[in-house]
Design a protein around this nucleic acid. Structure first.
Lengths: 103, 103
DNA sequence: TCTATTGTTCGAATATAATAGAACTATAGA
DNA sequence: TCTATAGTTCTATTATATTCGAACAATAGA
């Protein structure tokens, strides 16, 4: 079963993370993953956009080290890399999630 | 003495802040202001770029609610709006500054 | 009033990003 | 083997950002 390549957390720059979180659609994806607390397929994250657009945003979230995508059958299971990101950049992602929850 | 207009902290979106912080030059400006702990003129923040470029980045930092610029004579005194940003989005800016300090 | 200083604004070139339809890939299941 | 499903990749279009020289504006000081 072929899997998608992800950066190690060491390879991820802080500005990559900031950039990934600067788009409302991507921030919404992050929020849905954070609230779900479990892996979600791309299909479950339905923001009424073409799948090619969603795929583009997932790619950026992956390259920023924020999301891990595991292929299971025909589905792609997405989860937050919260612990890893927190260990490299303590407080950043948690604070953003908390801030976005309220707004 | 004419002053520059700034957004109120209520007007600032989280994604605006993320976007402003996603550029390495702008993050560096933020770091210099945070480390200085006092107001700095644009001239003191010398990143070896044309002043029109720096002015552009300051404009984005201002519009994101991160920087306040007060005109004093011919100089523009810049400071972080840390307390305000923290009160609206607790932990976000502090965590980013801490994370950027180490990297 | 003239000049130097500080920074903004303008304008144009270049680069990067977002959007989305269409074609494609991989797998599951009949 | 055929078909449906889930996403990705390709390609083109449009929009937004970055960069920086040049012109401009505001003030201080001589």
């Amino acid at each position: 079963m072929r899997q998608i390549k992800h950066p190690t957390i060491e390879q991820v720059e802080l500005t990559d993370i900031m950039y990934a979180l600067s788009d409302p659609t991507r921030l919404e994806i992050i929020m849905l993953l954070a609230q779900a607390g479990r892996k979600l397929t791309c299909g479950e994250i339905n923001l009424n956009r073409p799948k090619s657009s969603m795929s583009h945003h997932f790619k950026i979230l992956r390259s920023a080290g924020l999301v891990e995508t595991l292929i299971e059958g025909t589905e792609h299971m997405n989860s937050l890399r919260l612990e890893e990101v927190e260990s490299k950049y303590p407080g950043v992602l948690n604070a953003v999630i908390k801030a976005a929850t309220k707004s």
